[in-house]
Design a protein around this nucleic acid. Structure first.
Lengths: 120, 120
DNA sequence: TAAGATGGTTACTTCAAAGTAAGTACTGGA
DNA sequence: TCCAGTACTTACTTTGAAGTAACCATCTTA
């Protein structure tokens, strides 16, 4: 029997890790192709991206649509359940934005490029 | 110059990782001693707990109060800024709770012990 | 004809985070 | 007198997540 002390432990198992919250964040703005995701997630390798997407699919947050054509085309989108995770991802985005602003006011040499991304 | 594409990246740097969100979650219910935290976070070692607390302190989320007595007594609490992270931790808790309930209804053999913890 | 883009898989390596175990210093209780 | 509890630190090991690089098949464009 699997035991959790706090709800947050289950959350961390599903969307914890280095990339998953970020992937969900990008999928929130709509359906995305593999290469589109990879271009927008700086530093992720194709292997890890696909691996994370498959895990999110297994957990029911993401659905994968393969088009039977050449060259291959695969699209990823959030499921109905995946969309419920926006509650988390939204606050993580806005809290992070405030954090960056605060650090900028303190004189740290950082920028948020958000506005320069496609789909914004 | 440090660059972020999305606010969430900064958030993940600060409260990402295996334990930090959980620690903040526990500190939300008030001041805690080291040993108290360790007892309530199943599986964490003392070394890692203290290391995570120091990092949270460095990032301004947690404050550390040392009592000059024997035996030693150290208390950790959220700073004013740390308290703002409850926006994140709260939704992670409730989303996780719903996730567990959903999986229970599907017949998975899991429990949430939350109610049995102290401070509840 | 050769490169580039598509969306993967596989095998291997690296590395940082976490785990383990021991030591420090002091007190109180059995 | 010796063990337990307090809050650490240090040194070393483990492990799993991520990185790297090569490969596959197909089509388009230069």
């Amino acid at each position: 029997m699997k035991q959790y002390n706090l709800g947050i432990e289950a959350t961390l198992e599903i969307i914890g890790g280095k990339w998953k919250a970020l992937i969900i964040c990008l999928l929130m703005s709509g359906v995305k192709r593999t290469s589109e995701l990879q271009r927008n997630i700086h530093g992720i390798s194709q292997k890890v991206l696909i691996q994370q997407l498959r895990e999110l699919e297994k957990d029911g947050l993401v659905s994968r649509h393969v088009y039977q054509q050449m060259p291959p085309k695969v699209e990823y989108s959030l499921t109905e359940y995946g969309v419920t995770a926006n509650k988390i991802v939204d606050v993580m985005c806005s809290w992070g934005k405030e954090n960056i602003q605060m650090r900028q006011q303190r004189g740290e040499d950082i920028v948020l490029l958000e506005e320069m991304l496609p789909d914004h």
